[in-house]
Amino acid sequence: MESERRVRSDDPWPAGGTDTDIATLVAEARGGSQAAWDSLVERFLPLVTSLMRRYRVTGADADDVNQTVWLRLVEHLDRIDEPQALPGWLATVTRHECFRLQHLRGRTVPTDPQTSPTFERPDHSPDMLAELLADERHTALVDALLELPAQRRDLLLLLTEDPPLSYAEISRRSGLPVGSIGPTRARALQQLRRTRAFRRLTSPTDGSLT
């Protein structure tokens, strides 16, 4: 089938912009809104996934950790006083569940305390903060992307495919002549910078996010 695969089918691009902040989503989820809950999942699942990957929890173990984390959040919903602290809470629960699972499996990871992911660090170590800041920035960028008109958003999605697409391929899929890709990209990025989500990003970490 020769369909224009602009967005991967499993890419979750919730329709209708990103006006709702975390506090609103939490309040609506408390009221029983599955849609609000799903939006919270979209926002924070990449954080949970990246932590599990970092602690090398995979396969069925990752399924268990992931499920436990979200079930815990369901229980915890009514006790969230400060919705902005939610990413930190989720990260802490995920880390603890990863550690427990590693202990449960009797895994002894080679212990270089400088690098071992199982080395207990306080939850507000620079490491943890950097992780959360990067995640927050990533989330804001994705939110910013959602504020763009579909054509510009689709172009940026094509330009950020991994592995990268050729300009000929981008042209074919976007319907833009190769000569228009550069100018359209420039306008799309300019508009991205003017989105509310992007402007809310006050302090770029230091440009390097890895």
Binding site: D10, V48, Q67, L156, L159, L192
Partner: peptide, 25 residues
Amino acid sequence: LDELAEALSSHRDVEPRHREAARSA
């Protein structure tokens, strides 16, 4: 664009079954 690519890669890397489990929780 580089930052956007990085941000998107973490969103694209999510296992669909993890999303499913998270939603149905």
